[in-house]
Design a protein around this nucleic acid. Structure first.
Lengths: 107, 107
DNA sequence: AAAGAATATATATGTAAAGGAATATTCTTT
DNA sequence: AAAGAATATTCCTTTACATATATATTCTTT
């Protein structure tokens, strides 16, 4: 399976989606995630592992705690992919714009 | 489940991901999709239904054929969401840029 | 070294989703 | 109305995944 589907699958789960939106604020430890999302610690660990395996988050060990934070690259890559679609419609608008201004110019 | 997870879940499946990348070229009928993706017609119909339910594609009936095409809005919304993340890093760079130029200006 | 804190892993269970094959539906043409 | 084309739906089986609970691991502190 491609790296993109891995990314999408990791995000396509409600709890994990909440997680990344939580980590958008700032890095959090496993327990903090668990409490803020109202789930058990094992669940939090598992979901974070999946996000980690997908390259969406990274853990920084601090004493016994593990502080998780988002990895920008993953989201940028996803952004690139989505853009490869939205560009299609943007281009049409741009081209339309171009034609209109062209017409204007010809007047 | 939110509309975003619905979108992500629909895209988080290899076959369906191929489908949308196929439909990026141009609209295709069910049979065309099935042949190009080397899957059975029922599978193609099912996956297209899921994409349809997720608001990613729409079908235009032409005789017995059903021509499927992408729905721009769905991808634009996804784009907005991803941007809400990438903006974070862009902002920091922008701010950094801002500070640097500010310093430059002060000289 | 022992105890406690924080996190990771293992196991079992239930549930959702994908794949395959057969069948049903819809529309067109003669 | 009948036949054929194109697509949708149903049923079944299997796999993947999420949840819950218990247990193991790792690190710090005393």
């Amino acid at each position: 399976m491609t790296v993109l589907t891995e990314t999408l699958k990791a995000l396509a789960e409600p709890t994990r989606l909440h997680m990344v939106e939580l980590l958008k604020e700032r890095p959090y430890s496993v327990n903090e995630c668990a409490k803020l999302l109202d789930i058990g610690q094992p669940q939090a660990s598992k979901h974070l592992k999946i996000l980690n395996d997908a390259g969406l988050v990274v853990a920084k060990t601090a004493a016994q705690k593990r502080i998780y934070s988002l990895i920008p690259e993953a989201f940028c890559q996803l952004d690139e992919w989505v853009k490869s679609f939205t560009v299609l419609w943007d281009n049409r608008l741009a081209r339309l714009d171009g034609h209109l201004t062209e017409r204007k110019d010809k007047r």
